[in-house]
Design a protein around this nucleic acid. Structure first.
Lengths: 164, 164
DNA sequence: TATCTGACTTCCGTATACTTATGTCAGCTA
DNA sequence: TAGCTGACATAAGTATACGGAAGTCAGATA
C-alpha cells in the first residue's frame, strides 16, 4: 500500500547524472562481499558463536568445499580472522572469529531475521532476538545521530563531495 | 578484534538440536526471496523512487531480461505491486511500487549501505542518508521494544514454541 | 491500414555458486 | 614409524544468475 521512498534533497544531482551505479553504490559493493547464501549463513553462525571449521560445516548444512572457500574469502576480506586453538592431546588448529568489520554487519542480519520472521512464516517468529537486559524483542530501527527515530519517509539522500 | 556474538539463554536447546537450518532460519529464507544482486539493486531503485520498467533498466545497469524477471518475481512475492499509469497520448502501462512487505526491507538496505560506506570506500561515505528533520546521518541501530539501545553483546536468542 | 514505441519474452552463451566424491597433509598418539 | 583425525584442496558435474541479440505484442498515432 504505502510506498516508502528515499526523498532527494536539493543538493542532489538528478538521478540520471549519478556516477555509474555498480562501482559507487555501497549496497552493490556490500553485496559483492557477502552476496552469497553461504556467506550469509556462515556469518550467521559466527554471530551464534561458531568458530571452528567443523562447527560451520555442521550448523550451516553447507558442503565442506563451500565452507572452506567462504572462510578463506571472508578472512581475506577482513570480516573474519583466524586464531589458533588447541584441544588437549591435539595439535594446534585454527579457528575463526568476527572482526570489527564483520561484527558491524549485525544490523544487516538482524534486520533480515526480523523481516523474514514477520513476512515469511505463518505462525509468528521462529527465533526471537531479545535484549538480555530486559527480555524485550530486538529489531533494527533507523535512527539519526541526533537520536531521533527516523520514519521511512523522513530520509534524504545526499551525495557527498569527493576529490576523486 | 572484538567478536560480537549472540548469546544463548538457558531456555535454548543446544545448537545441534535445532531444526534443520535451511527451512527454519529466517535469514536464509529472506535470502531466498531477495538473494540476488539484481533484486537488491531493483529494490534500491524502488526506494529511490523508480516505478517504471525503463527507469529500473536505466538506473540499475541490469539487462532487460534480468529486470523483467525480477519485477515479475518480486511482484509475485508481494514486495512490489503493479499499478497502471498513463502518459498523455500514450496507452495505459503498468508501473511498480513497494508494498508494505517490500518497504519494510528498508532497514536491511540502509544497514548494508552504511556498512559498505564505512568499510568498502576509502574516503568516507559516497552517499549519505540523512534525517529530513534535522539533517543528521541515519543508520540502522538495534533497539528493543522497551526502547533500550542494544549493544551487540546484549543479545539473547530464544526459540519460540510452535505447534507445527 | 501501416508504423511506431514501451514493455516485455525467447533464445542462446557464459560465469559462477553450489554439490558429491576423493585426495592431501600436519602432527599427535600408539 | 605407522596410523588416525581434523582441516582443508581438487576434480567433475549441475543449477542458475546473468548478458546480448532478436522477436513479440498491445494499442496509440499518421
Amino acid at each position: 500500500m504505502s510506498a516508502s521512498s528515499i526523498h532527494m534533497t536539493g543538493k542532489l544531482a538528478p538521478r540520471a547524472d549519478w556516477p555509474a551505479p555498480g562501482d559507487h553504490c555501497p549496497i552493490a559493493r556490500t553485496f559483492e562481499v557477502i552476496g552469497t547464501k553461504s556467506a550469509f549463513v556462515i556469518l550467521r553462525e559466527a554471530f551464534y558463536g561458531a568458530s571452528r571449521y567443523e562447527e560451520f560445516v555442521a550448523h550451516t548444512g553447507l558442503s565442506e568445499p563451500a565452507v572452506a572457500a567462504r572462510l578463506r574469502e571472508l578472512s581475506a576480506e577482513g570480516l573474519l580472522e583466524k586464531f589458533p586453538y588447541r584441544e588437549p592431546g591435539q595439535r594446534a588448529r585454527s579457528a575463526y572469529r568476527l572482526t570489527d568489520k564483520g561484527g558491524e554487519l549485525l544490523p544487516v542480519l538482524v534486520a533480515m531475521m526480523r523481516w523474514g520472521d514477520r513476512w515469511l512464516f505463518e505462525n509468528g517468529a521462529r527465533v526471537e532476538v531479545a535484549h538480555s537486559g530486559c527480555g524485550s524483542p530486538v529489531h533494527a530501527v533507523l535512527q539519526c545521530d541526533t537520536g531521533h527515530q527516523v520514519a521511512p519517509d523522513e530520509l534524504d539522500l545526499v551525495q557527498s563531495q569527493r576529490r576523486d
